[in-house]
Design a protein around this nucleic acid. Structure first.
Lengths: 173, 173
DNA sequence: GCCTAAGTTCAATTTTAAATGAAAACTCGA
DNA sequence: TCGAGTTTTCATTTAAAATTGAACTTAGGC
């Protein structure tokens, strides 16, 4: 069997190899993946965040992709999600077109961003629905027990909403 | 085309039909399904809980299955999950082998039961892992930045754990 | 103590969510 | 402005999760 390796200036055939994950990095990834599962965040996103979190310097797209052995699509979508929730930020170095990524400095702010986007919308859009249900139940002579339950549900929703908007105020003001 | 309908005492051919879901019931089911999604609880479980929640009287297994058009397996597993988290309870009527199901009286207690089982175990089992990571990072001269991040992570985990065990004490004492 | 209604189990199936990667789109240095 | 270097998009593939239903087990009325 003969293997030909052609190398021209047109096809530099650069095949950068990235350092495999260390034991510590693997463990931290496991941890973030587990926590992410609780919050309903996908594994690839957790892996990216964990890698950035355990890196002393900001990382380039390629490095993230290479070290996590993940597709470009997943890295791109994962970074977009993390950025959209204020969990990572990118910096640009002059003379290079590549962005470099690092976790946002405040872990608290990151969690807040995540929660705000995950739970607030559902709480908000349910408010009118619950109101309608309570009204209809009263009008249509539902049992007192059911009306009571629905009313309590509505109260819970309102409280959760108030608490959330208090704890998780929107960014900027 | 000829259709034969054979009916004997051995095969009573009873085909109980159940009332279709009302508009209100459908809406409430949607609401619970949405909330359940946030908590990572599956749709069939949310549907069962929603149906019980909107019913003035306790419901039999068959009725749940019939009205939700759901398989026996899903009803059985769903009720087990809900019962295991203290969200529903069954009552037995003398002379009948069927159990009748209703939501637990306290919605708050139900949520507490759910959260305790969903998040506490992960927080607890991560504690020693994080400690190990912090120790190793210090031993192996990781960058100050990374050590600091890991330490903050550990602090967060501890605080969340304390808060959880305070807010969600185990049942019985 | 039978016997059957009632409920459970779990392998197979269906459904849903996530990851991939080739092609398109964008971006900035030259 | 051109074009290679980057990143994004999204149809397809793959993987994970939920549901089904027939076989099995259990419970309790007779």
């Amino acid at each position: 069997m003969i293997t030909l390796s052609i190398k021209t200036s047109k096809t530099p055939m650069k095949k950068p190899h990235f350092a495999p994950l260390s034991a510590q990095e693997k463990e931290l990834i496991k941890f973030f993946v587990k926590m992410a599962a609780i919050l309903g965040v996908q594994r690839s996103v957790a892996e990216i965040y964990a890698l950035l979190y355990s890196s002393p310097e900001a990382l380039e797209f390629d490095v993230i992709q290479g070290r996590l052995a993940m597709s470009k699509g997943s890295v791109s979508q994962g970074l977009r999600f993390l950025k959209g929730n204020g969990m990572v930020e990118s910096i640009k170095v002059k003379g290079s077109r590549r962005e470099r990524w690092q976790p946002s400095p405040s872990l608290a702010a990151s969690l807040v961003g995540l929660l705000r986007n995950q739970v607030l919308p559902s709480l908000e859009e349910s408010k009118p629905l619950l109101q309608k249900l309570v009204d209809e139940a009263s009008d249509q002579n539902f049992s007192a027990e059911v009306i009571d339950r629905l009313t309590r549900l509505q109260r819970w929703n309102s409280r959760a909403l108030e608490l959330s908007t208090f704890l998780l105020p929107p960014p900027e003001a």
